[in-house]
Amino acid sequence: MLEDGDQTIVQSETKSRVDQITSPAGQPVTVLRFEGDIASTSKAAVLGTYQALPKSEVKLLLLDFTKVDYINSSGIAVIIQLLIEAAGAGQKVSAFGLSAHFNKVFTMVGITKYAGLFPTQVEALASL
């Protein structure tokens, strides 16, 4: 039985995790790993996690969508907000792990002009 205000039945909460890795060229790379849905409710998990990073230290940023099943236009808008802030901070951003469908959708809306899209973390790292 659905109860009023029960959002968990159909919405999968966005989880995010920050990893620090090193590129093949030896540069530090920050990876934001997302899990769940990316929608209007994801602002804190996506943008909030990004904004908590030390801007002066982060120069290379990877977005990991491997465990993301659903992205809607509001979620894409949140990603664009992240890209706006990253561009302002002079950070280079790439993304990986999108399904073929969301790779197409991100390309349709023009995100590829501001963030490279790659199938895997290895390929994204190699592009940096």
Binding site: A77, I80, I84, V109, Y114
Partner: peptide
């Protein structure tokens, strides 16, 4: 996307 990135257009509105 260019207008969105430059703050001249709402990041939303793609539906």
């Amino acid at each position: 996307i260019d207008r969105k990135m430059h703050g001249e257009e709402d990041p939303r509105g793609m539906g």
